[in-house]
């Protein structure tokens, strides 16, 4: 009699039908590091093409979130671009996916070609503020650091042994792409970033250059052979009670079948 009841009936039928459809595919969720995210998106695409009943959902939001999500069960697999803290490692299984180095980036037009560890440290501690002091032109240095919690900042702090409050940055960048745009748009800027991301963008024509560190050139080769000093491991994190579909995705990501995808992002696959 009343149209509203009919409407409700139709609505509930639609909802039920949608639920019925959803059960034919299984979803595997990955969350975490925005450094690993793009690789795993490619891996997921290739895996889905071969396994149409499994959907792989890759979300980024930082290593800490990935580790937390994997441990709490919000995600099947967490992605971390830093070593786990002891508290985080408890009850978590770690699988090394690849290695990555963090290097310093300058604008391509900057005449400075190398900086010593001491010079880099002094730039970020605010003791050196003009490129002239390190053999460049007379221009103020724009030192860009990274936000609290990002793995690059942790690696930077470990390598130079400085506390966060000692760092006196001119700017702070969040996501990698924001950092790249800041350096590409500022000839006097310096930032530190994952070599993988920086190399990919450099090859794509973005006007940036990577500085050698302690005499070791910043490239995927030196990261691969372990000689690049400021480097990290890219880890996939899981729980013990991993769902079968998630286990398959994990095994696939760690297999040689995806090495070309990892190398395409300028990371070095774990052997």
């Amino acid at each position: 009699m009343l149209p509203i009841w009919r409407l409700l009936l139709v609505l509930s039928a639609v909802v039920l039908a949608a639920c019925g459809n959803g059960q034919t595919t299984t979803t595997v969720t990955l969350t975490g590091s925005s450094t690993i995210g793009p690789v795993m998106t490619e891996v997921a695409r290739r895996y889905e093409a071969a396994n149409p009943t499994i959907r792989v959902d890759v979300q980024t939001g930082g290593s800490s979130r990935g580790i937390q999500d994997a441990r709490t069960g919000l995600a099947d697999i967490g992605m971390s671009s830093r070593a786990l803290k002891p508290a985080e490692a408890e009850g978590a299984n770690q699988h090394i996916l690849a290695r990555d180095g963090v290097a310093f980036l300058l604008h391509a037009s900057n005449p400075v070609d190398s900086l010593s560890d001491d010079q880099l440290r002094d730039i970020y501690l605010g003791r050196i503020s003009n490129w002239q002091q390190v053999g460049g032109k007379d221009a103020p240095i724009t030192a860009i650091s990274r936000a609290n919690g990002r793995s690059e900042l942790n690696i930077f702090q470990d390598y130079f042994d400085v506390a966060e409050r000692q760092i006196k940055p001119d700017l702070i960048a969040g996501e990698n792409q924001q950092g790249i745009k800041l350096v590409a748009g500022n000839p006097d800027a310096i930032i530190y970033m994952s070599i993988g991301t920086a190399e990919t963008d450099q090859q794509a024509g973005v006007p940036i250059k990577l500085l050698p560190l302690a005499g070791v050139p910043a490239s995927s080769q030196t990261v691969a052979d372990g000689s690049f000093p400021m480097s990290r491991v890219l880890i996939l994190v899981t729980r013990d009670d991993l769902a079968p579909a998630a286990k398959q995705v994990l095994d696939y990501a760690l297999s040689p079948a995806v090495h070309d995808l990892i190398e395409a992002q300028a990371f070095v696959p774990a052997r």
Binding site: P140, N186, D188
Partner: peptide, 14 residues
């Protein structure tokens, strides 16, 4: 980020 910030940077860094 790509237009305004570089413009201001040329005048008053960063």
């Amino acid at each position: 980020l790509v237009v305004l910030v570089p413009l201001i940077n040329r005048w008053q860094p960063p």
